[in-house]
Structure formats: structure tokens, C-alpha cells
Design a binder for these strands. Structure first.
Lengths: 189, 189
DNA sequence: AGAGCTATTGAGTGATCGCTCAAGAGCCAT
DNA sequence: ATGGCTCTTGAGCGATCACTCAATAGCTCT
């Protein structure tokens, strides 16, 4: 997963995979049936981990918006030793996939949609418990949140220094925390 | 350029380039000296067009912030027949480039930096002419703007429907137009 | 027309691609 | 120990990769 994540589908050869998995080609093809299937398995694992990490954050944080804002700020903090795995693997996959691999592209879109739905559900919970205004469009907020998160991680991949990354994450996080403030001020008005 | 943009560096073969350029391998290697050099030439052309388009918008628009907000909204409107060229070629390049092609990665970063500096200069002009608060950090605003623009274009690449894309662009554009409102309200306060 | 030059051609280079499969290793029950 | 089963091995498959170069075509001079 990490190898595919770092190098991408096309740039990763079976030689690379043999070394990373410590398996010979025959074993690889016995366990998985093709390079594409192996990639799809890696992508699925990546998605499940991302989703589970998000859910864990939502459970532990005091509120949905706090969890999401925290995720943005934490993402800036993950200055990986390998910057190649700073960007989201699903986004990398989507941008790298052409018409030659429609299955991979479709799955990528599906995973992104699933993550967006998780975000949307979180915003709906924030509305239900009065953290943000009830008349907002949760799906629209989710799309905005996901876009910002993807952009932040691309910025990290690019090599933007930690301080600037923190500032950017803070700008983004505030954008969502302000929804809370707006609700409060509207309620108190 | 369009072929590399759509398919990416690794997935584009010389066969593809021969067809797209209507040139035989010998001619391609006489004109450019390698696939990598050809890619770099395409990337440079892409950058120059992007930069020139931005400058034209900044000249024509009534103000810097109006130009930048307009760029975001216009980007949502570019629902290409080919969604493969919706995302920024430089971003795609950066995410697709590995340690095997350091020259391409370096150039990508350089172009992104150059675009960010253009954005920063625009925000500085907005400050100079009183459109936004003079104490803001223009470079920080530029980084935020560039991140949002990249994210919006990825969203377009992903296939998000036009209406949702417009809503997202509007959210983003407002984020910058609000800098103006804050200045005005502060001035009028 | 013909010499001199540049630009183009496309068959072919070795290397590497994703992938296969006959042969052998490892393991367990008898 | 031996037969039977699963799993692993790695040489090697055809295809394709980026790339080369001797031969040719096309052009501009006199």
C-alpha cells in the first residue's frame, strides 16, 4: 500500500512490488490476480483506514466540528519523513488514472464519495445537536471540507514548510469553526 | 501538452505522442531530446498560459479580489468535454512524479511557487488600493487561494456536477470577497 | 539540372514491462 | 518414511518501453 501510495500505479513496477512484498512474481499472482487487483486491494485498505481514523476522531472529539477542525490541524502536523505519502492516495489515484483503467478510477470516485458522505453525516450530527445552524446544506459543507482537506494534503506533499502549513490549516479550520460562531451569535441576537 | 495533461507522464507512451504530434520517433528526438524534455516543454507552455491567463484576468477585472473570485467561479464553469484536463497539469505532475524524475518535480514546484507569487502580488495590490485590510498576510492569502483553486479543479476532474461545483466555487469565492466586506465594515465602524 | 544541406523516416535496438508455469520446497497425515 | 497436498520459486514468455541511426526525401542554392 505504501509503495503504491508513494509511487503511483503506473510508476510502480512488479520488480518494485517483489522487493516490497518480499515475494516472487508467482506468489504475487497466486495471492492477487493482477497488478490492478493488487492496487485495488491496497486502495481499499487505504480507504478503510482513512474512514476508521475519521470515525475514531469523531467519537473522541467533544463535537463534530471540533473533530473536523482537529483533523485539518492534525493533517498539517503530519510532516511525514516521506513527503510522497502526504497527499491522499485516493486523490493521487484519481488524478493518475486514465481511460485505460476505468475500474480504478471508478473505485476512487466511490471511496471519495463515501468519505464525503461521512463528512456530511458529521455535519448533520452537528446540526442535530445545535452546534451549527440547522438550515445549512450538510452535503455542501462536506464537499467544501473534503476539498480543503485534499488541498491541504497536496500542499504538504509539495513541501510547504510546517509553519505555513499550520497557518493554512488554521485558516481552513476557522472557516468551519466560524459556522459555530455564526450560530451562537445568531442565537444570541 | 494536452495529451500529457490528460494521461500523465508515465501513462503516456511514445506511440501516443507519435500519433498526437503526427511525427515519427526520429523527428521527435531531433526536435526534443527525450520524453522528459518534451514533457518539461509541455509543462512550461502550460505554466505560461496559466500565468498569462491570470494576468489578463487581473488587468480586465475591476479589482484584484474581483479577478480572483471571478477566476474561481469561472473555473467551476469550465466543464470540459474532457474531464481529464479539468485538474491543474502542474498539480497532476507533482503528484505523479517520483524520485525517479527529480527534474520534473522540481520544475513543478517552481511553477506552483511562481503562480502563488502572482496571487500574492495581486493580494498586495488589493491592499495597496484599500480593497482589503493592509495588515493581512498576502502570501498566506495567496497560499489559501491557490489551495482552494487546486481543490476546486480536482473536484471538477472528479466529475462533480455543475450545480455543486458552482456552489463550491461560490463558497470559496465568498471567503475572499469577505475580506473586502470586513475591510469596509471596519472602515465604516 | 544538380550539388549540398537539413529534416524526416521507420525498422530495429536492448531493456523492461506485466505475467505464466513447470519444477521443486515445505508441510501434514498416515 | 512416504504419498498427497499447498505454496513458492525464478527462468522466461510475448509485448511494449524509450530511443537510435542509416537511408531517404525535400528544399535551396548556383
Amino acid at each position: 500500500m505504501r509503495l503504491f501510495w508513494a509511487k503511483g500505479y503506473h510508476a510502480t513496477s512488479l520488480k518494485d512490488l517483489e522487493a516490497a512484498l518480499n515475494m516472487r512474481p508467482g506468489s504475487i499472482y497466486a495471492a492477487f490476480s493482477s497488478k490492478e487487483a493488487l492496487y485495488l486491494a491496497a486502495l481499499q485498505r487505504y480507504f478503510e483506514r482513512s474512514r476508521d481514523d475519521l470515525r475514531a476522531r469523531l467519537e473522541e472529539a467533544p463535537s463534530p466540528v471540533a473533530a473536523l477542525a482537529g483533523l485539518l490541524r492534525a493533517t498539517a502536523g503530519v510532516v511525514e519523513d516521506e513527503a510522497a505519502t502526504a497527499a491522499c492516495m485516493i486523490v493521487k489515484t484519481l488524478l493518475d488514472t486514465t481511460a485505460a483503467e476505468p475500474e480504478i478510477a471508478d473505485r476512487s470516485r466511490g471511496y471519495l464519495d463515501a468519505m464525503r458522505d461521512e463528512f456530511a453525516a458529521a455535519f448533520e450530527r452537528a446540526q442535530a445537536q445545535g452546534e451549527i445552524a440547522p438550515d445549512a446544506d450538510a452535503m455542501r459543507l462536506a464537499r467544501r471540507f473534503q476539498s480543503q482537506l485534499n488541498a491541504l494534503r497536496i500542499e504538504a506533499h509539495r513541501g510547504t514548510p510546517r509553519a505555513e502549513l499550520d497557518a493554512l490549516a488554521d485558516d481552513m479550520a476557522r472557516g468551519f469553526e466560524d459556522l459555530r460562531a455564526a450560530t451562537i451569535s445568531a442565537a444570541s441576537a
